[in-house]
Design a protein around this nucleic acid. Structure first.
Lengths: 200, 200
DNA sequence: TATGCTTGCTAACGCTCGTTAGCAAGCGAA
DNA sequence: TTCGCTTGCTAACGAGCGTTAGCAAGCATA
């Protein structure tokens, strides 16, 4: 039924509701009592299913990190494909993960800093690794002459920024499907990078 | 001394320290006792200078909103200037505000949702008005043929997203000055929009 | 000298927080 | 039927929260 998580386990249901609350109010401003009420039970009952509030945040953040890495790997498996195409596929994969569960994506992007150590440091390392993978792709594209830009880091930062703003305005019932959005974003971002124009 | 706020009033000093804490930990996760300690005094003493915790957030958010509007107005006063140039100036102005006080900018961008009503709604109205002004500029540019894009809304969203990610990675002691960053960002974003290429 | 503003303290208020202990009902598997 | 897992309750813990009241020292101005 719900596109984001299976209904079978109570734990998954808690994660799902908590994620949407974390998105709406922020992690620190969401209370366990609020979460329990939303689920129709008492605060103490939550602890039959989870160990702590932060455990939920941890699962959301690291779960989504896995998704992003998986999407990127899929987009870049075939090294025979032109870099520009690989980058386009990576962008589309990234957007697909973002739109599949925009509540979780927002939490992933905004609330990770409420992770305590060492999870916080681990998370940042993952994020850096992901950005580095994107940057390497851009750099490769510049080296082969497929992409034109003076600075791969700069390009990568603005590119991911454009993409990561998506959960802030994306609405599943909007007039663009996730794939259309992904395609448009890739088009718009790469037109500049590729230095060519498709139409007027 | 400090580039962000004058030292003369204790109130301004509280605002400045609070802003940096709000940025680091988030508004909800920052306690008044923590803020007081950082300032070398007791929690109760803060209330000789401010009315509430939220008052600080309010001042930061609405103060920066004023700055953004002022910068945009300055960039677009001369209507004889080509739209593409006005847009470039608006981008550079926006970046200048962002980099002048990146802690306050981060709070402005991330923590506004902890404003209670009606301030929250007022803030969102301001933000919408600002985005609409940018969008109108883009739309005008498309109409005159100076800019090429299928959808002004889409362009504006990704454009502002790229810019607003800046406080997340900008470091005042980095190897690019704010003006260089502003120029590069404008260049990179408009090269795509303008459909031309400066160099290889 | 008197006024009033700025600045800061101590002590405490009512409240909410995340979490735990102990108990119990339901239910599928052995 | 018994075992054990899932699910949920009530009651309470210690801690921290934002905020207030009441008081007082310092200091510039009138």
């Amino acid at each position: 039924m719900t596109p984001t998580a299976p209904l079978r386990s109570r734990k998954a249901q808690i994660d799902r509701v908590a994620t949407s609350l974390f998105r709406a109010r922020g992690f620190a401003a969401t209370s366990m009592r609020e979460l329990a009420t939303e689920l129709g039970l008492e605060a103490g009952s939550l602890y039959s299913h989870i160990k702590s509030k932060e455990e939920i945040l941890h699962r959301v953040c690291f779960g989504l990190a896995d998704d992003f890495f998986a999407a990127f790997a899929t987009a870049t498996t075939d090294t025979a494909v032109p870099i520009a195409t690989q980058l386009r596929l990576a962008i589309e994969g990234h957007v697909r993960v973002l739109t599949r569960d925009s509540a979780a994506s927002t939490v992933f992007l905004q609330e990770w800093r409420h992770l305590s150590e060492p999870a916080r440091t681990e998370f940042l390392a993952l994020r850096d690794r992901y950005e580095a993978a994107f940057r390497a792709l851009v750099q490769q594209g510049i080296a082969t002459g497929e992409l034109h830009a003076p600075d791969a880091s700069f390009v990568t930062l603005t590119l991911l920024a454009s993409l990561n703003w998506l959960p802030a305005w994306y609405r599943p019932d909007g007039n663009l499907t996730p794939d259309e959005i992904a395609h448009r974003l890739a088009e718009q971002l790469l037109q500049g990078l590729e230095g060519r124009r498709v139409s007027g």
